[in-house]
Design a protein around this nucleic acid. Sequence first.
DNA 1: TTATAAATGTGATTTAAATCACAAAATATA
DNA 2: TATATTTTGTGATTTAAATCACATTTATAA
Lengths: 227, 227
Amino acid sequence: MSTSSDFLKYVPIFSELPDETIEAISQVGTKKYYKRDSIVLMEEDAGSALFIIVDGKVKVSRTSNDGREVILSILAESDFFGEMAILDGQSRSATVTALEDAELFIVQRNQFLELLQEHPEIAISLLQELTRRLRGADIKIKSLSLKDAEGKVATVILQLADDLGKIKFGIVEIEKLPLQQDLANMAGTSRETISRTLHSFAKKGLIELDGSKLKILDYAKFKEMYV
Amino acid sequence: MSTSSDFLKYVPIFSELPDETIEAISQVGTKKYYKRDSIVLMEEDAGSALFIIVDGKVKVSRTSNDGREVILSILAESDFFGEMAILDGQSRSATVTALEDAELFIVQRNQFLELLQEHPEIAISLLQELTRRLRGADIKIKSLSLKDAEGKVATVILQLADDLGKIKFGIVEIEKLPLQQDLANMAGTSRETISRTLHSFAKKGLIELDGSKLKILDYAKFKEMYV
DNA sequence: TTATAAATGTGATTTAAATCACAAAATATA
DNA sequence: TATATTTTGTGATTTAAATCACATTTATAA
């Protein structure tokens, strides 16, 4: 039987739970809709809740005083965010913006902490997910510290491929590549460098560009080259 | 009464546990000594265990093909590492090296997982610690992406102050500042830039340098300026 | 202590990538 | 469909910081 709480089964930290618990969780949270470009939560915000993406994409970013932005990650269906403020009680450190119209499922802090108490297995998968994110962050730090512009762009493409890419006949395809300015804000380079580098990759036969579609023609090779 | 397992009380993820449990943990692990510059664990290593620093300092780093290094963090007494490979089963992604002669307490993977099962509160404080590290990583990514060399050096000094600094009369003091080359590998800049920038900070009256001692004369102001 | 090696300070030069500037293309909107 | 707006492509110029080069200082070992 399929119910409206099905989306929770695909959330890694909940997927191991029995159906009744999933159903129970679906009762303690609420759905909310966000229009493209609207801000889901702001740096420095006090409140805290866990947000699960039912549909749509969001970007998690930090902004400098002079308005320049780093995009820390792009999250999609069945990803979650907001757990950091819940877990350590610190105020939010990043801003989350809807990249397209999005539907989010929101569980308030206390409810989530209760869940964590009653189902220690949630804590374990949460630990796994945070570990995954920490590994990703370490890779990013290495890329930003040691690589030239080309390498940084490659790192971002690989990150997007892992997070949003779909594999078709061995070719990894990113359906809706973010705008060049957003790619620049992910890579820590300029918009112009993104443009030039993507075309250079295409000329070398590493990727194929078609509008906002990007195909990595040989994922293993590409990874090997730029890891 | 003071016992030889006292050091475990100061490890954040164990500090809440009853004395008997702490004593029990001290039985399941072993102490091991590492000489300065010796490698505690290597990128790509298979095995996994949790390492707790009883005494000494280590650096956690990643290295590029051409031998250049990023230092992800410097850890000291009562810090721990090695949890990532335990939690997600992936192979190690970083190398850990002793910066000075060090004494480590080692708990094997299975033992640690058992502890986690029996004491869910360990999982909670582990979640808090990973969150703290993730916040730190995000700050680093922002710094590397958006700041100029001066800002990057400031970020590293602030990170060191938080991790190893001691407050004396409102002045934050870093006793043994890492070598300039290590600072460079932490900041993602060159050794020469570290030298020039530190002297520039000193000239501006922001810090005081005395051998390998560094004092941040007005921590709040310094943070404000470079956050 | 003296010799040797490692680490630091600081100018001069080079270089990768940012910025500037604007045309062309693609998307959104009237 | 036409018009406005956003996004992209690409040369030319500037610039911040890396690299080079070497003297000086500090630490380590003989």
